[in-house]
Amino acid sequence: MLQLDNIRAGYKGTEALHGVSMWVDAGTIVSVVGSNGAGKSTTVNTISRLVTTYGGRITFEGRDITGLGPAEVVDMGIIQVPEGRQLFGPLTVAENLRLGFHRQRRVKNREAAFRDKLDYIYDLFPRLKERAGQRAITLSGGEQQMVAIGRALMAEPRLLLLDEPSLGLAPLIVEKIFDVLSGLRAQGLTMLLVEQHADEALALADYGFVLSVGKVTVHGPGVELRSNAAVTSSYLGHAGAA
C-alpha cells in the first residue's frame, strides 16, 4: 500500500534520513522503532510531506506522492496523529473532531455522514462525548490523545500514521490506547506506528522496522524482532530489561 524507496530527507539542508526503504501492506500494523533522534518522526513527516525530500520515491497505492504537498496527501487518505497530540487547544473537543472531518467536506449528505462518524468516535471513546463542549486544552493527556486519534479517524483514513501516541502518558492509559489500536486493526485499518516504547509497539505490529541514525538496520515480523537479541540489547534497552 505504502512504499518508501531509498528516501533521503531532512529539515533545512540537514539530512536526517539517509536512504530509508520500508513498506506497509494494506490491513497491517507496521511499527517503526528506534532511539531518540533515529529519524522516526522525520519518517512520518516525510510521508505527510512536511519534510523536504532530497532523494528517493514514496508511492501510495501505486501512485508517486513524492511531489505532493501535505494537504494533497491528506486528501488521498494518509492521516497523521502528530507527536505530542497537537490539538487545537482553544477549540472545543467537538470542533477538533469536526476539523478532522475536513477531508470529507465533499461527500454527499455531509451532515449525516458527519453525525455517523461522530457517533462512531463517541462509541470508541465515550469520555469524549462527555467532554464535547470543553476546550481541548483543559483535557488530561490521555483524553487529549483520544481526541487526537478520534480527530484522525474522522477523516476516514486509508493509512493512519501515529507518531509516539504513548508519549507522556501513564502506563495504564498507554495500555488503553494500544487496545484501541488493536481494535482498529481488527476493523481492517492500516497503520504505521512510530514508538519509543518498542516492546509494546512490536507486540502489536505485524511487521517492524528498526531505525538507527537515519537508516533501517533490521526489519522483520514484529514477534521476531521482539525476540531478536541484537534488537533487544541495542535498541529496546530498558524496555527489554523491564
Partner: peptide, 19 residues
Amino acid sequence: LAIRATGVDPKVALLMGIR
C-alpha cells in the same frame, strides 16, 4: 472553523488538509 483552526496552528491545520 477552518479559519479559526489555522489561526491557532497553521501547521496542524495543514495536517487536517486545510489549505
